[in-house]
Write a protein that binds this DNA or RNA. Sequence first.
RNA 1: UGACUCAUGGUGUAAAGGUAGCACUACAGAUUUUGAUUCUGUCUGUUAAGGUUCGAAUCCUUAUGAGUCAACCA
Length: 539
Amino acid sequence: MAEENKGLNFIEEIVEEDIRNNKHGGRILTRFPPEPNGYLHIGHAKSICLNFGLAQKYGGKTNLRFDDTNPVTEEVEYIDSIKDDYFQQIYDFAVKLIKAGKAYVDDLTAEEIANLKGTPTSPATPSPYRDRSVAENLSLFEDMKAGKFKEGEKVLRAKVDLASPNMHMRDPIMYRILFTPHHRTGKVWCIYPMYDFAHGQSDSIEGITHSICTLEFENHRPLYNWYIDNLEIFPSRQIEFARLNLNYTVMSKRKLLQLVKENLISGWDDPRMPTIRGMRRRGYTAQGLRNFATTVGIAKRNNLIEFSLLEHCIREDLNKVSTRTMVVTEPLLVEIVNYPKDQIEWLPMDNNPEMENSGRHDLPFSSQIFIEQEDYMDDPPPKFFRLTKGGMARLRSAYIIECIDVEYSSEGTPTKLLCRYIPESKSGQDTSGLKVKTTIHWVEMSQAIDVDLNLYDRLFTVEEPDKQEGDFKAYLNPNSLSVIKNAKAEPFLKQAVETGITHFQFLRKAYYVHDANSNLDKMVFNRTVELKDNWSKGK
RNA sequence: UGACUCAUGGUGUAAAGGUAGCACUACAGAUUUUGAUUCUGUCUGUUAAGGUUCGAAUCCUUAUGAGUCAACCA
């Protein structure tokens, strides 16, 4: 059984050791507690993958503590239960602590409590109410619950250690009075437990074996354990790991909210947002996001992940699954002078060479086609493989063409290429013997459909917008979105969308996703991520 | 200036006292009807100083740097 612990992250090591020691009978139960407010972002996605991944790997389960969607994992089968409320049980825990003389009702105001709390280097001063009798505390706490006091008038505090260098241990507040109705339980309760007296207790009630949270809760762990020890309840274990940070974006909900509220982006699902909704609308696949979550790893040190890693993981999946189509984003008209006018020929093209049995579709070809402006140059730099005056290139899935003349606008930019095609160079049955350096994409003119393209770039111009001087919003990238109207697409694109295909590779350009908010008469596509481009990089 | 935590190439993450590896990035090359994919190669690393040891990224000490904590937020 001496299997080496090769390449395990520190949480997996803990889990495997627990299993070896038969802790909790080898049972593994994690949990993911999405907050009911705000939206999930890629950091949550990492946490979801961690918790669900651990459960899956070690034959355990994961509790989704609040009812919410689970957009990344999509597989709901691992969800064991949706939490009902634990208010009564947590209340009973509080009573138990009071009876043990380990909790008391305090009449001090929030401000007074803060003033008596001391500093990290000097101990707290006891509240004058700290030594109330058990009977009095019990009665007052009942009155709190019964709604006999106003908000802020009384709180229940744990009697822990006023001299602790850990501020969380200086008699933390367990319950406060709030008359705001709860979204699920309504007005049944007017006292609510604080995070520290709710989260750990819920873990314990559910029998969570490994309660995984982010680093900022490290200082809470002694209190987490104190409550469990003194309540003598199921010993869930809190484990902290470093949250995900991505460069060129912000992750704090407060800042994301600002972007939404100030209309600096179109909403929580804006494809530039690091939210799960935004990323899905951007075209990031669930599998790609999972690739990313496992690739970034789990550790305790603060990190700043490069955006290029995310892009790599997304491309890795998209390369396998996306349907190839041809779309010309900035059209340049090409007339094939030796091809019969008014003739249309349908040529086959693979839907996805990376996927077996993905089939083919036909695309029209005629004497008038569009190519990409950037695929032609009058005076090409060295190593330019594409079309030049007098040069040749292959049209993907079609013929080799030779550029014999060019028409220009008054400003001197090319408006039309006059080309000759080589009839015996037809794709798949080429007997011409010609060798061309590259293959370019194109779209036939009469059958082309107009589509709009949203081109996205990084949201911020600096790696760590939070750490800049002044307002982080000053570092928003003004070019994070550019729109291309009326790009020319082959007709198959529309048929594909109509049959439910959403993820495409526009050949030689980028991966795009059909924007579900657009209608079929004028389709909109969002650029997910560009293809790697070693040519323009070298320029 | 108290407590807790962390420190390995440009980035992220492994190596549980015994060859510092993997991925991304960058660069070079091969293949290619996508300048994509795929494949091959190259560059770059244990924060510092002491100590223990035959041997230290790993253990100890100190220093340095970074993060978190003094809401009736989570």
